[in-house]
Amino acid sequence: MNCLKCEQKAVYDHLGLRLCKDHFLRYFEKKVADTIKKYDLISEGDKICVAASGGKDSLAVLYCTMLYCRKYKIEFFALAIDEGIKGYRDHTLDDLRAFCKEHDIRLHITSFKENHGSTLDDIREKAMKKLNKKPCTVCGILRRTDLNRAARKLEATKLVTGHNLDDESQSFMMNSLLGNMGHNASLGPITGLNLNEKFVPRVKPLYFVSEKETRLYTFLKGFKVNFAECPNIHLSYRSVIRDKLNELEERYPGTKNGMVNGFLEILPLLKEKYKGKKAFSYCEKCGDACSGKICNACRLESELIQ
C-alpha cells in the first residue's frame, strides 16, 4: 500500500491515514509542535529541562524539543535520573549520553544514590516486604521528586516529559478504575493542579502521539534505541492496564485517541472540582510542597533508607 500523499510505500497506517517515511516524519514533528503551541507548553523566555532516560519516548521528546527550542531560540537541556537498576538504566543512560553528544545537548545526570543514599535495587526488597509497596511506586515517588528538585536547582521554568497518548490513557483508566478521580484532575498536557513556587510545571509535547508512533519515529530517524525492559515492570498495575488497552486498540482502532480526547472534555470540570480541595504545606524535612507534615519522598527515605 502506498502513502496517501505520494507514491512511496507506506510505513504507517492508522485510522485511515497511510504515510510513507518522509510524510510520517513530518506528520509526527508537526503533531508535536502543534501540541506545544496549542497548549503553550514552551514559550519565549522559558528555560526548558527535558527529563530523559535514553528510552524511545525520551529520545523522541528530547529531539523534537530540541528542534522547537533551536527554531525559536529557547534555552534547553536534558536531565536524567539514575535510579540504580542494574542491567537496565545503565544501558539506557549510555544511549542517552551518546545521543546528547551527537546532537550537542547539555546533559545533567543525578542519582537516587546521590540524592537518597541508596539505589532502587538496594531498597526494592525492603519496600515490598516492610511497606508492601511495589518498586514502581517507590521509584515513581523518588524519581518525580528528584526531577523536580534538580530542575528547580538548574533554574528551569518547565520540565518536559516524554509522556505519550498511551501513558495518558493508561493513567486515566487506572485512576478511574481505582476511584481516584482527583488524580485525573492532575493529568492533561500540563501536569499539576495546585501549582506553587516549589514545583516546576511539567509539560507533555508527546501528549497526542502513541507509543507505536514514537517507536516508528525513533526507528525511522535512526536513533539508537535498545529494547530494555525494567525488571520490575511486571509487578505494576500499569502493565495490566497497558495490555488491556492494547487489546482494545487492536480490536477497536482509535480507542486511546477517543479516551484521551473524551478525557480532555471533562478535564476543566475535574480541575474546577478538585482545585484547592487539598490544602498543601511545606515538608518539615526538605521544604518541598506536600499535603502533610513531610513529603512522600522524605517519608520513604525515613522508612526504607535511614
Binding site: 537496565y88 498511551d166 501513558d167 507509543e211 529494547f227 520490575n232 497497558r242
Partner: peptide
C-alpha cells in the same frame, strides 16, 4: 518484530 511498549 520490534516491541513498541515502554520498558519502564
Amino acid at each position: 518484530i520490534l516491541s513498541v511498549v515502554s520498558g519502564g
